[in-house]
Amino acid sequence: MLKYIAKRLLRSLVTLAIVITIIFSLLRLMPIEGYFPNYDKLSPGQIQASLTSMGLLDPLPVQLWNFISGVFQGDLGTSLVYRVNVPITQIIAEKAPVSIELGLLSVGLSLLVGIPLGVGMALASLARQKKGVPALVKRTPLRRCMDAVGMFFATIWEKIGTIFIVVIQAVPSAVYYLFIQLYGTDLFGIPTLFNKNNYATWILPVVSLALGNIAYYAMWLRRYMTDEINKDYVQLAKAKGVSSSGIMFRHVFRNAFVPMIQYLPGSILFTVMGSIYVESLYSIPGMGGLLVNVIQRQDNTMVQALVLIYSVISIVALILGDILMSIADPRIKLGKKEEAR
C-alpha cells in the first residue's frame, strides 16, 4: 500500500511536470503586452530592459527551470497586472480562506441533506413495491391508518426527491443561483452583498453551492442502495434473522457508500476551490473569479500559478479517492492492479 502510494506520487510528479511545461510554453506564445500594465506608454528600449530584468529573454529551458525551481521553493512569482508586483502566494493566501470556509460549509450541508434524502428515497421505493399486496391478517383500523400515512409519506418523499434531482440536474446552475439570489434576498431580507462578519449573508451562497452536491449525493446513494438491496447477501442476512434496520444500515448503506467514497474528495476539493458564478453573484472575495479575471487581463504569471494549483488539486483528489476506496473495499488491492491503471 505505502509502496503504491509512493509510486503513485512519483508518477503524479511526472504528470505535474508535463502540465507545467505545457502551460508554461503556451503562455510564452502570448503577446508580450501581458507583462506590462502600461505597455503603450513605454519606449522599445524600456520594454527590452524590463523583459531582460524579468528574465524573459533567457532561453526557454532556462526560464522553465527558473519557474520550476521557484515553485519548489514556494515562490509562484509576482502578479504583473492584477496587483502589480504583489507575490502570488500572498494574493492566494488572502483569497483562499473565504472560499474554503464557504466550501466546507456547503459540503457539510450537502452531506447532511443529501445522504438522508438518498437513503429515504431508496427506502421509499422499497416500500412502494409492497403496495397492493393484501395482508392476510386483519389489521386494526389504527394500524391501517398508520400504514396508509406511512405509504403516503414514502410516496411524497420519493416524488419530491426525484423532482428535486431532475430539476437540479437539468436546469443550468446559473439559473437557480439567480433565482435563489432574487427570491432569497427578497423573502428573508438578506443583504445581497456578502459580508464576512454578517452570518446571514453566508446562507444564500452556501445553499446555492450545496444544491448541486445534494442532488448528486442523493441520486447516487439512492441508485447504489437500490442495487445493493437486491443482492443475494442481503437475502442471506435476512435469512440469518438480521432486523430490517440492521440490514439497511450495517449491510446495504455501508456497501452502497463505498462507490461514492471515491468521488467524495474530488467533489469536496472542487467545492472548496470556489465557484466562479456564486462568488461573483454575491461579490465574495474568494478564489472563484480569480482565474477568469487574470486570464481576461492577461496576467500571465497569475494564470500560470493558478492552473498549477488546480492541477495539483485534481491530482490529489484522484489519489485520495483511490486510497479511500481501497481502505473501504478490501477487494481492491491497489498495489497489484497498478499496472492496469
Binding site: L236, A239, P330
Partner: peptide, 30 residues
C-alpha cells in the same frame, strides 16, 4: 399469518436457516 419483521426474526436463522444457491454472491463482500 406472520406479517412483521419482529415475528419473523426468531424463526429466521434460529429455527429455520437457509443455504443459498450461489456462494459467490451470498456473502457480504465488505
Amino acid at each position: 399469518q406472520y406479517t412483521q419483521d419482529k415475528q419473523w426474526r426468531n424463526i429466521r436463522g434460529g429455527q429455520i436457516a437457509m443455504v443459498l444457491q450461489d456462494p459467490m454472491t451470498s456473502l457480504n463482500p465488505l
